[in-house]
Amino acid sequence: MLKDFFSKKKKYASIPSEKAKQDIPEGLMQKCEGCQKIYYRKEMNKNLQVCPNCDHHHQFSAEERITSLFDEGSFSEWDKDIISANPLGFPDYEDKLEKDRKKTNLNDAVVTGKGTINGFEVAVAIMDARFRMGSMGSVVGEKITRAIENARTASIPFIIFTASGGARMQEGVLSLMQMSKTSVAIDRFQSSGGLMISIMTNPTTGGVSASFASVGDYNFAEPGALIGFAGRRIIEQTIREKLPEDFQTAEFQLKHGQLDKVIPRHQMKETLTTILDIHSSRGKDN
Protein backbone atom coordinates (compact mmCIF):
# COMPACT_ATOMS: atom_id res chain seq x y z
CA MET A 1 0.00 0.00 0.00
CA LEU A 2 2.70 2.42 0.99
CA LYS A 3 4.67 1.44 -2.08
CA ASP A 4 1.67 2.17 -4.28
CA PHE A 5 1.44 5.58 -2.82
CA PHE A 6 5.04 6.36 -3.64
CA SER A 7 4.95 4.97 -7.14
CA LYS A 8 1.83 7.03 -7.82
CA LYS A 9 3.44 10.13 -6.57
CA LYS A 10 6.26 9.81 -9.06
CA LYS A 11 3.80 10.12 -11.91
CA TYR A 12 3.11 13.75 -11.18
CA ALA A 13 4.56 15.98 -13.87
CA SER A 14 7.40 18.14 -12.69
CA ILE A 15 6.74 21.85 -12.67
CA PRO A 16 9.35 23.76 -14.69
CA SER A 17 11.47 25.98 -12.52
CA GLU A 18 11.24 29.76 -12.60
CA LYS A 19 14.65 29.80 -14.25
CA ALA A 20 13.56 27.52 -17.07
CA LYS A 21 10.64 29.85 -17.75
CA GLN A 22 12.93 32.85 -17.89
CA ASP A 23 15.18 31.15 -20.36
CA ILE A 24 12.55 31.36 -23.09
CA PRO A 25 13.03 34.57 -25.07
CA GLU A 26 9.80 36.60 -25.04
CA GLY A 27 8.11 36.75 -28.41
CA LEU A 28 10.40 34.60 -30.49
CA MET A 29 9.80 31.28 -28.77
CA GLN A 30 6.70 29.64 -27.36
CA LYS A 31 6.32 26.77 -24.95
CA CYS A 32 3.64 24.16 -25.69
CA GLU A 33 1.04 24.12 -22.92
CA GLY A 34 0.57 20.40 -23.51
CA CYS A 35 4.04 18.85 -23.68
CA GLN A 36 6.14 21.84 -22.53
CA LYS A 37 8.34 21.57 -25.62
CA ILE A 38 9.69 24.84 -26.92
CA TYR A 39 8.90 25.99 -30.45
CA TYR A 40 9.50 28.99 -32.62
CA ARG A 41 6.39 31.11 -32.36
CA LYS A 42 6.36 31.39 -36.15
CA GLU A 43 6.25 27.64 -36.50
CA MET A 44 3.33 27.34 -34.07
CA ASN A 45 1.48 30.18 -35.84
CA LYS A 46 1.88 28.44 -39.16
CA ASN A 47 0.56 25.23 -37.65
CA LEU A 48 -2.71 26.94 -36.54
CA GLN A 49 -1.44 27.06 -32.91
CA VAL A 50 -1.50 23.27 -32.76
CA CYS A 51 1.58 21.61 -31.24
CA PRO A 52 3.41 19.51 -33.88
CA ASN A 53 4.57 17.19 -31.13
CA CYS A 54 1.54 16.50 -28.88
CA ASP A 55 -1.34 17.99 -30.90
CA HIS A 56 -2.31 20.38 -28.10
CA HIS A 57 -4.71 23.01 -29.46
CA HIS A 58 -3.67 26.42 -28.15
CA GLN A 59 -5.83 29.51 -27.93
CA PHE A 60 -6.80 30.75 -31.38
CA SER A 61 -7.80 34.36 -31.92
CA ALA A 62 -10.90 35.30 -33.92
CA GLU A 63 -8.63 36.78 -36.56
CA GLU A 64 -6.57 33.60 -36.88
CA ARG A 65 -9.78 31.59 -37.10
CA ILE A 66 -11.09 33.75 -39.93
CA THR A 67 -7.83 33.45 -41.86
CA SER A 68 -7.74 29.68 -41.41
CA LEU A 69 -11.34 29.15 -42.47
CA PHE A 70 -12.51 31.62 -45.06
CA ASP A 71 -11.58 31.93 -48.71
CA GLU A 72 -9.09 34.73 -49.07
CA GLY A 73 -10.66 38.17 -49.04
CA SER A 74 -14.20 36.80 -48.67
CA PHE A 75 -14.86 37.77 -45.06
CA SER A 76 -16.69 40.97 -44.20
CA GLU A 77 -17.31 41.92 -40.60
CA TRP A 78 -20.63 43.04 -39.11
CA ASP A 79 -21.41 45.36 -36.21
CA LYS A 80 -17.80 46.03 -35.30
CA ASP A 81 -18.67 49.24 -33.48
CA ILE A 82 -20.96 48.04 -30.73
CA ILE A 83 -19.44 48.52 -27.29
CA SER A 84 -20.53 47.88 -23.73
CA ALA A 85 -22.55 50.56 -21.95
CA ASN A 86 -21.68 49.30 -18.45
CA PRO A 87 -25.44 49.11 -17.81
CA LEU A 88 -25.17 48.41 -14.06
CA GLY A 89 -22.47 50.99 -13.48
CA PHE A 90 -20.40 48.10 -12.18
CA PRO A 91 -17.24 49.13 -10.33
CA ASP A 92 -13.95 48.77 -12.30
CA TYR A 93 -15.73 47.25 -15.31
CA GLU A 94 -14.88 50.04 -17.75
CA ASP A 95 -11.18 49.85 -16.92
CA LYS A 96 -11.21 46.13 -17.55
CA LEU A 97 -12.94 46.60 -20.90
CA GLU A 98 -10.51 49.29 -21.95
CA LYS A 99 -7.55 47.09 -21.05
CA ASP A 100 -8.90 44.20 -23.11
CA ARG A 101 -9.75 46.45 -26.04
CA LYS A 102 -6.13 47.58 -26.12
CA LYS A 103 -4.80 44.06 -25.65
CA THR A 104 -6.92 42.40 -28.34
CA ASN A 105 -7.79 45.22 -30.71
CA LEU A 106 -11.40 44.02 -30.43
CA ASN A 107 -14.42 45.92 -29.09
CA ASP A 108 -15.83 42.87 -27.32
CA ALA A 109 -15.56 39.09 -27.12
CA VAL A 110 -17.14 38.12 -30.44
CA VAL A 111 -16.51 38.86 -34.11
CA THR A 112 -19.43 38.35 -36.50
CA GLY A 113 -19.72 38.57 -40.24
CA LYS A 114 -20.09 36.60 -43.41
CA GLY A 115 -17.77 34.99 -45.89
CA THR A 116 -17.27 31.91 -48.02
CA ILE A 117 -15.77 28.57 -47.05
CA ASN A 118 -14.59 26.86 -50.23
CA GLY A 119 -17.29 28.82 -52.04
CA PHE A 120 -20.13 28.20 -49.58
CA GLU A 121 -21.49 31.40 -48.14
CA VAL A 122 -22.08 31.39 -44.38
CA ALA A 123 -22.77 33.75 -41.51
CA VAL A 124 -20.41 33.30 -38.64
CA ALA A 125 -19.85 34.31 -35.01
CA ILE A 126 -16.40 33.69 -33.58
CA MET A 127 -15.82 34.24 -29.89
CA ASP A 128 -12.41 35.32 -28.69
CA ALA A 129 -11.44 34.15 -25.22
CA ARG A 130 -8.74 36.79 -24.89
CA PHE A 131 -11.43 39.44 -24.31
CA ARG A 132 -12.86 39.14 -20.79
CA MET A 133 -12.48 35.35 -21.01
CA GLY A 134 -14.95 35.41 -23.88
CA SER A 135 -17.74 36.19 -21.46
CA MET A 136 -21.17 37.12 -22.79
CA GLY A 137 -22.74 40.46 -21.94
CA SER A 138 -25.13 42.66 -23.90
CA VAL A 139 -22.71 43.29 -26.77
CA VAL A 140 -21.95 39.63 -27.39
CA GLY A 141 -25.65 38.76 -27.17
CA GLU A 142 -26.67 41.54 -29.53
CA LYS A 143 -23.99 40.77 -32.13
CA ILE A 144 -24.79 37.05 -32.15
CA THR A 145 -28.53 37.76 -32.35
CA ARG A 146 -28.01 40.08 -35.32
CA ALA A 147 -25.75 37.56 -37.05
CA ILE A 148 -28.41 34.85 -36.69
CA GLU A 149 -31.08 37.21 -38.04
CA ASN A 150 -28.84 38.10 -40.96
CA ALA A 151 -28.36 34.41 -41.69
CA ARG A 152 -32.13 33.93 -41.59
CA THR A 153 -32.96 36.76 -43.96
CA ALA A 154 -30.14 35.76 -46.34
CA SER A 155 -31.06 32.05 -46.07
CA ILE A 156 -27.47 31.02 -45.41
CA PRO A 157 -26.09 28.67 -42.73
CA PHE A 158 -24.97 30.03 -39.37
CA ILE A 159 -21.73 28.77 -37.83
CA ILE A 160 -20.64 29.68 -34.34
CA PHE A 161 -17.26 29.08 -32.68
CA THR A 162 -17.66 29.40 -28.94
CA ALA A 163 -14.88 30.25 -26.48
CA SER A 164 -16.30 31.59 -23.28
CA GLY A 165 -16.25 31.30 -19.53
CA GLY A 166 -20.00 32.01 -19.53
CA ALA A 167 -22.18 35.00 -18.79
CA ARG A 168 -20.44 38.28 -17.96
CA MET A 169 -20.91 38.97 -14.28
CA GLN A 170 -20.47 42.75 -14.58
CA GLU A 171 -23.66 43.06 -16.62
CA GLY A 172 -25.64 41.01 -14.13
CA VAL A 173 -29.03 39.70 -15.14
CA LEU A 174 -28.75 41.39 -18.55
CA SER A 175 -25.99 38.90 -19.36
CA LEU A 176 -28.25 36.06 -18.29
CA MET A 177 -30.99 37.38 -20.57
CA GLN A 178 -28.64 37.19 -23.55
CA MET A 179 -29.03 33.43 -23.24
CA SER A 180 -32.78 33.73 -23.85
CA LYS A 181 -32.38 36.46 -26.44
CA THR A 182 -30.03 34.38 -28.61
CA SER A 183 -32.27 31.33 -28.05
CA VAL A 184 -35.31 33.12 -29.44
CA ALA A 185 -33.24 34.17 -32.46
CA ILE A 186 -32.00 30.60 -32.99
CA ASP A 187 -35.53 29.23 -32.74
CA ARG A 188 -36.69 31.66 -35.44
CA PHE A 189 -33.73 30.70 -37.61
CA GLN A 190 -34.01 26.94 -37.16
CA SER A 191 -37.81 26.90 -37.54
CA SER A 192 -37.37 28.56 -40.90
CA GLY A 193 -35.10 25.68 -41.98
CA GLY A 194 -31.75 27.33 -41.26
CA LEU A 195 -28.67 25.18 -40.66
CA MET A 196 -26.73 25.96 -37.50
CA ILE A 197 -23.35 24.45 -36.70
CA SER A 198 -21.79 24.96 -33.28
CA ILE A 199 -18.10 24.35 -32.67
CA MET A 200 -17.06 24.51 -29.03
CA THR A 201 -13.49 25.53 -28.44
CA ASN A 202 -11.52 25.90 -25.24
CA PRO A 203 -13.24 26.91 -22.96
CA THR A 204 -17.01 26.69 -23.44
CA THR A 205 -18.66 26.77 -20.05
CA GLY A 206 -21.50 28.26 -17.99
CA GLY A 207 -24.14 30.33 -19.71
CA VAL A 208 -22.64 29.88 -23.15
CA SER A 209 -22.50 26.09 -23.02
CA ALA A 210 -26.02 26.22 -21.53
CA SER A 211 -27.40 28.19 -24.47
CA PHE A 212 -26.44 28.57 -28.13
CA ALA A 213 -23.31 26.39 -27.98
CA SER A 214 -25.41 23.28 -27.28
CA VAL A 215 -28.28 23.69 -29.73
CA GLY A 216 -26.68 23.54 -33.15
CA ASP A 217 -28.01 21.08 -35.70
CA TYR A 218 -24.48 19.77 -35.27
CA ASN A 219 -22.49 20.25 -32.10
CA PHE A 220 -18.74 19.83 -32.54
CA ALA A 221 -15.67 20.57 -30.46
CA GLU A 222 -11.96 21.00 -30.88
CA PRO A 223 -9.75 18.34 -29.23
CA GLY A 224 -9.09 18.86 -25.54
CA ALA A 225 -11.50 21.78 -25.20
CA LEU A 226 -12.97 22.30 -21.74
CA ILE A 227 -16.76 22.03 -22.05
CA GLY A 228 -19.25 22.02 -19.20
CA PHE A 229 -21.86 23.88 -17.21
CA ALA A 230 -20.45 24.20 -13.70
CA GLY A 231 -16.80 24.76 -12.85
CA ARG A 232 -14.64 21.88 -11.70
CA ARG A 233 -13.82 23.51 -8.35
CA ILE A 234 -17.49 24.16 -7.52
CA ILE A 235 -18.44 20.59 -8.40
CA GLU A 236 -15.61 19.17 -6.29
CA GLN A 237 -16.69 21.34 -3.35
CA THR A 238 -20.31 20.29 -3.78
CA ILE A 239 -19.86 16.55 -4.12
CA ARG A 240 -16.70 16.37 -1.94
CA GLU A 241 -15.03 14.13 -4.45
CA LYS A 242 -12.04 14.49 -6.74
CA LEU A 243 -13.03 14.55 -10.41
CA PRO A 244 -11.26 12.48 -13.06
CA GLU A 245 -8.55 14.22 -15.08
CA ASP A 246 -10.49 14.11 -18.36
CA PHE A 247 -13.70 15.46 -16.77
CA GLN A 248 -15.46 18.01 -19.02
CA THR A 249 -13.02 17.66 -21.91
CA ALA A 250 -14.32 17.45 -25.48
CA GLU A 251 -13.46 13.73 -25.46
CA PHE A 252 -15.41 13.25 -22.20
CA GLN A 253 -18.43 15.01 -23.70
CA LEU A 254 -18.19 12.88 -26.85
CA LYS A 255 -18.11 9.73 -24.76
CA HIS A 256 -21.18 10.88 -22.84
CA GLY A 257 -23.15 11.52 -25.98
CA GLN A 258 -23.07 15.30 -25.76
CA LEU A 259 -21.22 15.96 -29.03
CA ASP A 260 -21.59 14.89 -32.65
CA LYS A 261 -17.87 14.83 -33.29
CA VAL A 262 -14.51 16.14 -32.16
CA ILE A 263 -12.80 17.85 -35.07
CA PRO A 264 -9.08 18.73 -35.09
CA ARG A 265 -8.36 22.29 -36.20
CA HIS A 266 -6.49 21.07 -39.27
CA GLN A 267 -9.58 19.22 -40.50
CA MET A 268 -12.08 21.96 -39.64
CA LYS A 269 -12.34 23.65 -43.02
CA GLU A 270 -12.58 20.37 -44.91
CA THR A 271 -15.23 18.88 -42.58
CA LEU A 272 -17.34 22.04 -42.62
CA THR A 273 -17.09 22.14 -46.41
CA THR A 274 -18.42 18.59 -46.69
CA ILE A 275 -21.35 19.35 -44.39
CA LEU A 276 -22.16 22.59 -46.20
CA ASP A 277 -22.02 20.74 -49.50
CA ILE A 278 -24.38 17.99 -48.33
CA HIS A 279 -26.81 20.58 -46.99
CA SER A 280 -26.71 22.74 -50.09
CA SER A 281 -27.56 19.72 -52.24
CA ARG A 282 -30.69 19.13 -50.18
CA GLY A 283 -33.86 19.06 -52.25
CA LYS A 284 -32.16 19.28 -55.62
CA ASP A 285 -33.40 17.03 -58.43
CA ASN A 286 -31.34 13.91 -58.91
Partner: peptide, 11 residues
Amino acid sequence: YKSMGEYIEID
Protein backbone atom coordinates in the same frame (compact mmCIF):
# COMPACT_ATOMS: atom_id res chain seq x y z
CA TYR B 1 -36.22 39.46 -26.01
CA LYS B 2 -34.66 41.35 -28.89
CA SER B 3 -34.71 44.50 -26.82
CA MET B 4 -33.02 42.97 -23.78
CA GLY B 5 -29.54 44.27 -23.03
CA GLU B 6 -27.88 47.67 -23.14
CA TYR B 7 -25.00 48.66 -25.39
CA ILE B 8 -23.61 51.63 -27.28
CA GLU B 9 -23.40 51.71 -31.03
CA ILE B 10 -20.62 54.09 -31.96
CA ASP B 11 -20.77 55.73 -35.34
